[in-house]
C-alpha cells in the first residue's frame, strides 16, 4: 500500500517536472575534481552569480574527482540529456583522454557552452637555480640529465614538456607527480631541476622570491605577472594553456541549450563575478561555444600528433 501511494506521489512529481518550464528542478554543476580546488571554486562562484539571473533556479555542485578528470567527464556524458546537468571540464585532459583512448566519450557527445577561465603553462625553477631563461635550460639539458616534474602523464604539463623536447631536441628525465603540491615541494626543496606547471599554482611563490618562473607558455604576457617573459619572446614555439569550460550533452533540446548559453554569457560578463574570480586567482577567458569548440578540435589534433610519436 505504502509503495503504491509513494509511486503515485512520485509519478505526480515527475509529471509536473516534465511539463513545467525549464528550469523547474535543481541543476547539477558537475565538477570533475575535488572540493576546494580551482575548478570547484570557479563553479561555486558561477552559481553564486547565476542565482542573480535565474532567481527561481536551484544549483548544486557535484564533485566527481579522479583520474585526471576522466571520472567526472564520463559521468557528465552518462547523465540524462534534460539540461539539468551542466558539466565543467578542463583541457587538455578533456580531449587528451579521447586521444589516449581512455575515454568512452568523444567531442561530438557534447554541446560546448563556452570557456570560463584559463591558466597558462609555465616553466619554473628554484630561485637559486642558475637557469634564468629557456636558453639556459636547453644548455643545461645538453650538458647533464635534467629532471623535470610534470603533474602526471597525459596532463598539460606533460604535453608542454613533450612539445619542448620536440622543439629543442633535448630529452628530459620526466618525473610524474600526483598533483601540483608535489611539484611545488620538488621545486622549492630543490629535488628536481625544473617543473612544467600552471601560472596560478606558482605565482605566489614567484612573487615571494622562492621560485623563478622562467617562461609563460603563452602568446602574451600575463596581466598578473607582467615581469615574466613568454616562450614566444624567447623564440620557443611552445604553447600550453589549461582552460576550464562548460559543456552539456549534445542531445539536450536546443531551447534549453540556448537558455544555458544565455546564462553563461550573463555570468561571464557580470562585473561582480569578474571581481571575485580575480581575487581567487582565476584568470577569466570568455570564449563562447563555437570559438571554444574550434579550439578544442585543434587541441585534439595537436595532442594526437604527440601521442602518435610517444603514446602513454
Amino acid at each position: 500500500m505504502k509503495k503504491v501511494l509513494s509511486t503515485l506521489v512520485l509519478g505526480a512529481l515527475v509529471i509536473t517536472g516534465a511539463f513545467a518550464e525549464y528550469p523547474s528542478k535543481t541543476i547539477k554543476l558537475v565538477v570533475p575534481s575535488k572540493a576546494g580546488g580551482s575548478t570547484d571554486t570557479t563553479a561555486r562562484l558561477f552559481i553564486d552569480t547565476a542565482k542573480k539571473y535565474w532567481k527561481n533556479a536551484d544549483f548544486v555542485v557535484v564533485n566527481k574527482p579522479g583520474a585526471g578528470g576522466l571520472i567526472g567527464f564520463s559521468y557528465e556524458q552518462r547523465q540524462k540529456p534534460d539540461g539539468y546537468t551542466i558539466g565543467l571540464m578542463f583541457t587538455p585532459q578533456f580531449v587528451a583522454h579521447i586521444v589516449s583512448k581512455k575515454a568512452k566519450y568523444t567531442l561530438d557527445d557534447f554541446k560546448i557552452i563556452g570557456n570560463l577561465a584559463q591558466d597558462p603553462g609555465i616553466v619554473v625553477v628554484n630561485a637559486k637555480s642558475e637557469v634564468k631563461t629557456l636558453d639556459d635550460l636547453v644548455r643545461l639539458a645538453k650538458s647533464k640529465t635534467v629532471t623535470a616534474a610534470v603533474n602526471g602523464i597525459g596532463s598539460d604539463d606533460f604535453l608542454a614538456a613533450k612539445q619542448f623536447e620536440a622543439q629543442t631536441g633535448v630529452k628530459f628525465n620526466l618525473l610524474p607527480t600526483k598533483g601540483s603540491t608535489e611539484q611545488k615541494t620538488a621545486i622549492l626543496g630543490n629535488h628536481v631541476d625544473v617543473a612544467f606547471m600552471n601560472l596560478s599554482q606558482m605565482l605566489a611563490n614567484h612573487k615571494a622570491g622562492k621560485a623563478r618562473i622562467i617562461a609563460i607558455l603563452d602568446m602574451k604576457r600575463a596581466e598578473v605577472a607582467p615581469d615574466i617573459p613568454t616562450s614566444v619572446e624567447q623564440n620557443y614555439d611552445v604553447l600550453m594553456t589549461a582552460t576550464r569550460g562548460m559543456v552539456i550533452r549534445n542531445d539536450v533540446k536546443k531551447e534549453i541549450a540556448d537558455k544555458i548559453r544565455e546564462l553563461y554569457m550573463q555570468v561571464i560578463k557580470d562585473p561582480d563575478f569578474q571581481a571575485k574570480a580575480k581575487k581567487s586567482f582565476i584568470f577569466l577567458d570568455p570564449r563562447p561555444g563555437d570559438e571554444y569548440r574550434k579550439y578544442l578540435e585543434k587541441l585534439q589534433a595537436d595532442i594526437q600528433r604527440v601521442y602518435d610519436k610517444t603514446p602513454w
Binding site: A35, G36, T41, R44, L45, I47, D48, K276
Partner: peptide, 8 residues
C-alpha cells in the same frame, strides 16, 4: 567540503 562551501 565545509571549507569549499564557505569560500564563496
Amino acid at each position: 567540503m565545509a571549507v569549499a562551501l564557505l569560500i564563496p
